[in-house]
Design a protein around this nucleic acid. Structure first.
Lengths: 157, 157
DNA sequence: GGATCATTACTCGGATAGTGAGTGTCCGAGTTGAAGCGG
DNA sequence: CCGCTTCAACTCGGACACTCACTATCCGAGTAATGATCC
């Protein structure tokens, strides 16, 4: 199992956007994080499609959070970038082979699939409980408010 | 995020092995589940490397659970086949870019990484609580004991 | 008849190709702000 | 001085190559049962 790298970038971008005043272009977000500008744009497009951020075109355009940071959970960002389908997809191999079960016997979910689904719900629940606003400073020894101010200052350049 | 298909096969194989009496060859497990024999062998090798199953060579060889099914968690199987590294790997992008933090400021884990790690721990915890023995019948309307007997009968052929 | 030994068939194990999603990149469509011009 | 027009620069969005892990496969090394052979 491997989570796409774009997910990490998207979460960090949402945190930065929550601390910015106006719209921030993708180019600038990429410069801030030192990552590929073009590929980061792809992740931001996913956030835009999901309605988490609003894309403002034009000369002073950029991305803005479409909701307060406290109302955007980390799960929202992960699902938007990585896709909503669960990691485990039951292929119904219980219906395969000479000992396979008949389709009419498979109304209920497979036991294995149920276990995996429960685990995935636990994972999603943990991510749903944390909002972008809950993510404090990136580094220890500095208050979130102070770092937020520093980020704003850097964005203003 | 996508979980390897071999994980599903491995879990089902462990359940079948827990109900078998003697060793079961990979060829037979593949026939039972109607999947590619050669690729299933690869997943079983992973289980063998992890010490979850014992491989008996020779004419009447095959795979046997090396521990009671109640002492093998689903998490053990998933980690053996899919690898122990977590799905989310922090790339420390907080150290990148002109605003990057210095390495000496990054002794503590990144806030984002911490959130993701907590979620992953919840996921693993849910899988660790379920053992192979806890997985009942694959289909509804049949008791686990009855299906276990049927599986044994099919394996005896 | 019993023990020994070569045979043989069967098993696992790692090394070898094919494929799809993720990764990285590019250029075009659209919009906004500002500058220039005329009244 | 004010309003309009034109322009230009900047933004996002989707379409196009590249890479690596997962999928699928093959053949060789090793082992235990089996059958024949000899005492």
């Amino acid at each position: 199992m491997k989570l796409a790298a774009g997910v990490e970038w998207a979460i960090h971008c949402c945190v930065v956007l929550s601390r910015a005043d106006g719209p921030v272009p993708a180019q600038r977000l990429a410069e801030f994080h030192g990552v590929s500008p073009t590929y980061l744009a792809k992740s931001l497009q996913a956030l835009s499609r999901a309605g988490l951020v609003a894309a403002l075109e034009g000369r002073v355009g950029g991305y803005v959070l479409s909701r307060p940071a406290a109302e955007i959970s980390v799960l929202d960002v992960v699902l938007a970038v990585d896709g909503p389908e669960p990691a485990f997809r039951c292929t119904e191999i219980r219906q395969n082979g000479p000992f396979g079960a008949k389709p009419e016997e498979c109304q209920e979910m497979c036991s294995v699939a149920r276990v995996m689904a429960n685990a995935e719900n636990a994972w999603r629940g943990a991510l749903a409980e944390v909002s972008i606003a809950d993510i404090g400073a990136y580094v220890a020894g500095i208050t979130p408010a102070a770092q937020a101010e520093a980020v704003r200052a850097w964005l203003a350049n």
